[in-house]
Simulated scan of single mutants.
Amino acid sequence: MAATDRAPVGGVSVSRLGFGAATLGNLFAPVTDEDAHAAVETAWDRGVRYFDTAPHYGLGLSERRLGEALRAHPRDSYTLSTKVGRILEPADTGGTDTGFAVPATHRRVWDFSADGVRRSLEASLERLGLDRVDVVYLHDADECGDGGTQALREAYPALERLRAEGVVGAIGAGMNQVPPLERYLRETDADVVLCAGRLSLLDQRAAHSLLPEAARRGRAVVVGGVFNSGLLADPQPGATFDYRAASVDLLGRALRIKAVAEGHGVPLRAAALHFPFRYEAVASVLVGMRTAAEAADAAAMLDVAVPDELWDELRAEGLLGEADG
Rank of each mutant, 00 (worst) to 15 (best):
T32F: 05
A281N: 00
M175Q: 11
R219I: 04
G224V: 11
L268F: 05
P74G: 11
G116W: 00
G321D: 14
R49S: 08
A220D: 10
D5G: 10
D134Y: 02
P237M: 01
V285G: 01
V12F: 10
L251S: 09
R65N: 06
V117S: 02
R86D: 06
P55E: 02
S124A: 07
V306M: 11
S13W: 14
E68D: 14
A214Q: 06
I257L: 06
E213F: 07
E126L: 12
A141F: 15
V285E: 02
T32D: 10
A296R: 12
S284M: 08
Y279R: 08
V266S: 08
A155T: 07
A29K: 13
G147H: 07
G252I: 08
E309N: 08
A220S: 14
E317L: 13
M1P: 13
E122S: 10
F100I: 04
L250D: 12
L199Y: 06
G18H: 12
L125E: 11
D191T: 05
A300Y: 10
G67M: 12
A141S: 14
L61A: 08
R186T: 12
A271F: 07
E34V: 15
R244W: 03
R290Q: 00
G147L: 09
F241W: 14
F227Y: 15
P157H: 02
L302G: 07
E165T: 04
T82H: 09
G18S: 11
G99V: 00
Y57P: 12
L255T: 14
A43S: 07
Y243N: 04
R75A: 11
R186E: 15
H73K: 15
L231G: 10
R198G: 08
R46S: 10
E41G: 04
G99R: 01
D131Y: 06
P74D: 14
G252D: 09
R64A: 14
